[in-house]
C-alpha cells in the first residue's frame, strides 16, 4: 500500500454515524420548528442569520485566508438599505425583493471599497484596518441623524412581502431564511469548488507562488471581498425586515468577533463547520441562561479546549459537504 493510500484509509469510519446524526438533527429541527413557540422560532431564525453571515465571512477568512474583522459593516449596509427604502423615514416603500437586490449590489460595492485599500495588507495589519473600517461605518451611521436616526435607529419598518405573500411572523422568516441559507450555501459551496475557489486557496497558502502560476491576486481577492460582502448585506436586509427596527447597536465590533469565533470554533473554511459553530455559539447562551454572567468564561474555556483538542475546528476543512453526502449515501 502506498503512503497515499494509507493516508486516505486512515480516516475514521465513525464519520458515517456523525453524518447521520448531523442530518437527523437538521431535519428534526426543520420539521419541528413550525410547532415551536414564537420565542424558539426567533432563536432559530437568528441562528440561521448567523449561519448566513458565517458563510459570507468564511469566503474571505476561510477560503482566501484574509482575516477580516469588519464584516459587520456589510451587515449594517444591508440592514440600513431595508430600513431606508421601506419605512416612513424617507417615506419610501419599495418591495422587499427589489431592496434585496439593491442591498446585494450596495454590499458588493462596499466590499470592493474596503478591498481596494487593504489589498496589500496581510495578517494582523489587515485585521486592524478592517476592524477600523467596521467601526467607521458604525460611527457614520451613529452620526448621520438626519438620515439614519442616529443612535435611536429607525423604527416602524414596513412589513415585508414577497410577490404578494406577506412575510411577517417569525415562522415566515424561518422559511425565508432557510431557503436563503440553502441557496446561498449551495452556491458558495459550488464557488469554493470552482477554479476561483482553488485560486483563493492558493492565495491563502502562498500568495507569491499563486502569482507565479498566473493568478491575478488583486482581482481574485476583490472577488472574495465582494461576494462575502454581498452575502453579509443580504443577511442584513432580512434581519432588518424581521426586526422591523434597526439601530447601530446591532452592528458593533462584538458581532464581527462573534462571527469570526463561530467560524474558528466550527471549522475554518468549511460550510458544515459554520453550521456547527453557529449552533454552539447561539444555543450555548440559551442553555446557559441561568449562568448568564459566566457566558464569556464558558466561551473562553470552550475556545481553549478546542484549540488543544481540535485545532482545525469541530468539523475540519477536509470534511466538506461532498464528504458528508458520500458518507450518507455510500461510495
Amino acid at each position: 500500500m502506498s503512503v497515499a493510500e494509507t493516508l486516505t484509509a486512515a480516516r475514521p469510519r465513525s464519520g458515517r454515524t456523525v453524518s447521520f446524526l448531523f442530518l437527523a438533527i437538521a431535519i428534526t429541527l426543520i420539521v419541528a420548528t413550525p410547532f415551536l413557540p414564537n420565542y424558539y422560532v426567533r432563536v432559530i431564525n437568528s441562528l440561521l442569520i448567523y449561519i448566513l453571515l458565517g458563510i459570507g465571512l468564511n469566503i474571505v477568512i476561510g477560503y482566501a485566508g484574509l482575516l477580516d474583522l469588519g464584516f459587520v459593516a456589510f451587515y449594517a449596509v444591508g440592514a440600513y438599505s431595508y430600513a431606508l427604502l421601506a419605512s416612513p423615514q424617507l417615506d419610501l416603500h419599495w418591495p422587499f425583493l427589489l431592496i434585496l437586490l439593491v442591498a446585494a449590489c450596495l454590499g458588493a460595492a462596499t466590499g470592493i471599497l474596503l478591498g481596494i485599500p487593504v489589498l496589500r495588507l496581510r495578517g494582523d495589519y489587515l485585521a486592524i484596518v478592517t476592524l477600523g473600517f467596521g467601526e467607521i461605518i458604525r460611527i457614520i451611521i451613529n452620526n448621520m441623524d438626519w438620515l439614519t436616526g442616529g443612535p435611536k435607529g429607525i423604527p416602524r419598518l414596513d412589513k415585508a412581502s414577497i410577490l404578494g405573500i406577506q412575510v411577517a411572523r417569525p415562522i415566515d422568516f424561518f422559511w425565508l431564511l432557510l431557503v436563503t441559507v440553502l441557496v446561498v450555501g449551495m452556491l458558495v459551496w459550488r464557488l469554493e469548488r470552482s477554479i476561483l475557489g482553488k485560486a483563493w486557496a492558493a492565495i491563502r497558502e502562498d500568495q507569491d507562488a499563486a502569482r507565479g502560476i498566473g493568478i491575478n491576486t488583486t482581482n481574485a481577492k476583490l472577488a472574495a471581498f465582494a461576494t462575502s460582502a454581498t452575502i453579509g448585506s443580504i443577511a442584513g436586509a432580512i434581519f432588518a425586515a424581521s426586526q422591523r427596527f434597526v439601530s447601530p447597536e446591532s452592528f458593533t465590533l462584538q458581532e464581527s468577533v462573534l462571527i469570526v469565533l463561530m467560524i474558528v470554533i466550527g471549522g475554518i473554511g468549511n460550510i458544515l463547520g459554520i453550521v456547527a459553530g453557529a449552533a454552539i455559539l447561539m444555543l450555548l447562551p440559551e442553555v446557559l441562561r441561568e449562568f448568564a454572567e459566566w457566558r464569556i468564561l464558558f466561551l473562553g474555556l470552550l475556545m481553549i479546549f478546542l484549540i488543544i483538542v481540535r485545532p482545525a475546528g469541530i468539523v475540519p476543512r477536509s470534511f466538506g459537504p461532498d464528504k458528508l453526502i458520500r458518507r450518507l449515501f455510500g461510495k
Binding site: K198, A201, A202, E205, D206, D208, A209, I213, I215
Partner: peptide, 15 residues
C-alpha cells in the same frame, strides 16, 4: 513552494 494544504491534484488544477 507548494500549496501545502491543497491536494497534489489541486496544486496542478489551480494552474
Amino acid at each position: 513552494r507548494l500549496f501545502d494544504q491543497m491536494t497534489v491534484l489541486e496544486n496542478l488544477e489551480v494552474c
